[in-house]
């Protein structure tokens, strides 16, 4: 007989695999059922082989170069050109995200550390920043497109602004929440204000900033995708929009999968970097 109070569940990795297998099986069965009924099954849910076969169709989004012609200039649809088109789109979207996050970090964390230096200013800054942060920032996208054009520059500024405000609030909060006892201890050991800031505040905010950074990163991917779905003429979001116009679900699945993989990779890389930066944390 066993007894005891069962209080916790565990993460069991094999269920992830099982879910993956289940998803593929469900997808294939649903696609077969739809194929039997619908006139254009591809505009609802294509089968897995059909979807994989759409790699070459992605050639349509290759702008030409590297000796491979764009299809509108008479190039053929090939798997190589399709993969090139996907890689090109991923590169452009990823570049916008990285530049946007870099700008957001400079504005948010850099600015937060500057403002946070003086407690009175830091506390005063909370209320206007909370107001700014409460705005539906994604809805300002057409405004950014209007100001800066539907360009990479506009998208980077859009991400930098939206994620920057998130990071600014997170930084100020983290500065505010550093346990007072560390600052007291540094002071009685003779540290100047500047040394307290450099040796206590800056390292001390990292654990709390990590959460804000993770949120800002996911939010940035949303913003990058939205910017490309709505205005910019290239990138994964734009490819998605073109496929959407002709209800080509097979292409959309391939593009979506690359987007998901790219976003997940940045999150994993960020986690690794953050682990390393705060390896001292319990």
């Amino acid at each position: 007989m066993t007894f005891g109070t069962h209080l916790r569940t565990r993460h069991e990795a094999r269920w992830l695999m099982l879910a993956g297998v289940g998803l593929i099986a469900t997808w294939e069965v649903a696609a077969l059922l739809i194929a039997g009924q619908a006139v254009r099954p591809n505009s609802i849910l294509p089968s897995i082989p059909h979807t994989l076969g759409a790699f070459s169709e992605l050639s349509d989004y290759w702008p030409g170069g590297l000796g491979i012609k764009a299809t509108q200039d008479g190039g053929r649809q090939t798997v190589v050109a399709g993969i090139l088109a996907l890689g090109y789109g991923a590169l452009i979207t990823g570049m916008r995200l990285v530049l946007g996050m870099a700008l957001a970090t400079a504005l948010g964390v850099g600015g937060g550390l500057l403002i946070g230096y003086v407690p009175a200013i830091r506390r005063f800054a909370f209320s206007p920043l909370n107001l700014l942060g409460a705005l539906p920032l994604i809805a300002t996208l057409p405004l950014f497109a209007f100001w800066f054009g539907a360009t990479t520059q506009g998208a980077v500024l859009f991400i930098g602004f939206g994620a920057g405000i998130t990071l600014l609030r997170a930084t100020l909060n983290a500065v505010e929440n550093i346990p007072r006892r560390y600052i007291n201890n540094a002071r009685v050991l003779g540290a100047s204000s500047w040394m307290v800031y450099r040796t206590i505040i800056v390292p001390g905010i990292l654990p709390e900033l990590r959460g804000g950074m993770a949120i800002a990163l996911t939010f940035s991917w949303s913003m990058a995708l939205a910017a490309e779905l709505i205005g910019i003429q290239d990138g994964l979001g734009r490819m998605m929009l073109l496929a959407l116009r002709f209800s080509e679900v097979d292409r959309m699945i391939l593009i979506g999968a690359v987007f998901v993989a790219l976003a997940a990779t940045t999150v994993l890389v960020f986690d690794r970097l953050a682990d390393r930066a705060i390896k001292w944390e319990e």
């Binding site: 993460h11 995708l225 779905l229 979506g256 997940a264 999150v267």
Partner: peptide, 19 residues
């Protein structure tokens, strides 16, 4: 629940919008 939560805890669900 963990497959869904792990995936969409990292990837923005806006990617589902076109579908």
């Amino acid at each position: 629940s963990s497959p869904v939560l792990l995936l969409f805890g990292t990837v923005p669900d806006l990617v589902l919008a076109p579908f």
